[in-house]
């Protein structure tokens, strides 16, 4: 287009990119699904973050069964200070939610979080973190728990990957 005053990007042209913040701070909720992953979440939470919030345990009332996406579902998260927070409210205020499970641990609680995400149409990302003695079967077991509920499922290579992923997502 001869009328245009710029062409395809060269190194020189790249200098004219407009410099401004193109995104707002986002709310990322990181939730441990079991006791082993609570340690991981606790460790990761000590790093520097851009507003991410971390939760080390989940509890829910008997009536909050998997698949219950009514407004009345009752489930609570425990934050790092030991305070109880309402799951649905936390998810409602999130841009996306990350759940972490240690491979082989019981990750069935993910379904309750998935229900809350479904209620508010939020993306759920699942991380399976293998431990030093984790077997392949245990990883498979964890993947099967998380697969039906997550938009993205990753077998993380370790805590350093959890950190890298959260930084990459501007958590």
């Amino acid at each position: 287009m001869l009328s245009e005053s710029t062409r395809m990007s060269s190194a020189q042209e790249a200098a004219y990119r407009i410099q401004y913040p193109n995104s707002k701070k986002r709310a990322v909720k990181v939730i441990a699904l079991d006791k082993m992953s609570a340690r991981i979440v606790d460790e990761v939470s000590r790093m520097e973050w851009n507003g991410a919030t971390f939760f080390t345990s989940l509890s829910f009332a008997a009536k909050s069964k998997p698949g219950d996406t009514s407004e009345g579902m009752q489930a609570w998260l425990e934050d790092l200070a030991g305070k109880t927070q309402d799951l649905v409210t936390e998810v409602e205020n999130a841009d996306f939610v990350v759940v972490i499970t240690a491979a082989g641990e019981d990750a069935r609680a993910v379904s309750v979080i998935a229900d809350a995400c479904a209620l508010h149409n939020k993306t759920l990302v699942g991380l399976v973190v293998p431990q030093s003695q984790t077997s392949d079967e245990q990883v498979t077991h964890s993947l099967n728990h998380l697969r039906p509920f997550t938009r993205m499922l990753v077998v993380a290579s370790g805590i350093d990957y959890v950190e890298a992923m959260l930084h990459a997502l501007r958590a």
């Binding site: 042209e13 993205m152 290579s157 890298a164 992923m165 990459a168 997502l169």
Partner: peptide, 26 residues
């Protein structure tokens, strides 16, 4: 190529489905 010779990754906004890229970089 339209991203420029070296894209400015400090300005990108990755989402969950970009985890393959995140993991490869890592």
């Amino acid at each position: 190529e339209s991203m420029g010779p070296i894209v400015d990754r400090t300005k990108e906004n990755l989402v969950g489905c970009d985890n393959g890229i995140i993991m490869a970089r890592h």
